[in-house]
């Protein structure tokens, strides 16, 4: 039997069964106990556990990458022989294995929140500098969690049938959540992002200076690219060149057209350099992953 394969589970077959929440709570508690037990493991025993778990987890993905998959296997057919069966088993196990990672991440989010609360409660209780901001943060956090859950419970369970996309069917909770999420959070996100425009402006102002040969080359390339981004300037400049050459496509002056120059810089200078960097980064990631997987690295994370 393929234990890891995706198949209809009790969860999917009984979406309305209230007992599932009991099981969820049980699993949650068991998880917390496991976390607690692992944190009490003596220091000397940690490395073998970390290295062992890392190896097992990595082994799955290495096999998934290397093991051949059955060719042209139809949905209504069973795989032939050991190689095909293992290949299909690895393929169908991906959601299960990825699910484990998601579950672990969810547990860790609790630790993240604990860190946040600890930092800000300490600030408030010790009345450290700017402690008022910490109060604001905690109030916002509590409000968002409370309203978010209330909104979710109403939409998914309590009055699921009554609430639609039409805003007239919304309750006060739905409206408040919408104001907090769509009205505030999203726009604050966008505001933070737009601040980058100013930073690009001031960074460019400082960085593009004719200090050395390299800096001059950098600035000239930046100017060509910036000018080429302005359609009106490019059209005007190219039009002038067309007038000079009589629109003869064989004339050498065509190479001075702004989009040609910028295209050359992009395709012949930038892209090859980026590809070379990508090769280096890829090799570095592979080496790092290999060292972690095989537990070859000492110090840092695997110590």
């Amino acid at each position: 039997m393929n234990l890891l394969a995706y198949q209809p589970t009790w969860w999917t077959l009984n979406p309305q069964d209230n007992g599932r929440y009991g099981v969820l709570v049980g699993v949650f508690i068991a998880g917390m106990v496991l976390f607690f037990a692992l944190s009490k493991v003596p220091h000397s025993a940690r490395r073998p556990i970390v290295v062992g778990v890392t190896f097992l987890a990595g082994l799955f993905w290495v096999l998934r990458y290397l093991w051949p998959e059955p060719i042209a296997l139809r949905e209504n057919e069973l795989p032939n022989g050991f190689v095909e069966k293992t290949g299909q088993w690895l393929q169908t196990s991906v959601p299960f294995v990825s699910g484990i990672a998601q579950v672990v991440t969810s547990f860790l989010l609790g630790l993240g929140m604990f860190s946040l609360l600890r930092v800000h409660f300490t600030k408030i209780t010790r009345k450290q500098k700017d402690w008022q901001f910490s109060v604001l943060l905690l109030v916002c956090m509590a409000l968002m969690i409370a309203v978010g859950y209330a909104d979710w419970l109403q939409r998914e369970f309590w009055i699921k049938e009554k609430i639609t996309d039409d805003t007239t069917t919304w309750t006060n909770v739905n409206v408040v959540f919408n104001i907090l999420f769509e009205g505030l959070l999203q726009n604050m996100d966008a505001a933070m992002f737009s601040i980058i425009a100013f930073y690009i402006f001031s960074a460019a102002y400082r960085a593009f200076r004719i200090r050395s040969m390299e800096a001059t080359l950098l600035m000239s390339s930046a100017l060509i690219v910036m000018l080429s981004l302005m359609g009106a300037v490019t059209s005007g400049w190219n039009g002038t060149i067309d007038n000079m050459t009589g629109s003869n496509p064989a004339n050498l002056l065509n190479n001075l057209k702004l989009n040609e120059l910028a295209g050359w810089l992009r395709n012949m200078v930038q892209v090859p350099a980026l590809q070379a960097l990508e090769f280096g980064v890829g090799l570095g990631t592979l080496a790092m992953a290999l060292r972690l997987w095989l537990g070859l690295e000492r110090g840092g994370v695997t110590e």
């Binding site: 969860w11 999917t12 979406p15 032939n80 959601p95 998914e156």
Partner: peptide, 26 residues
């Protein structure tokens, strides 16, 4: 490659039931 003969899957293996909220549920 498409002519590899394979055993048919037994009928009693149904399609996965739709998950609540549409996400892959484990």
């Amino acid at each position: 490659m498409y002519q590899i003969e394979r055993q048919p899957k037994p009928e009693e293996n149904p399609e996965p039931a739709p998950a609540e909220g549409g996400e892959v549920t484990l």
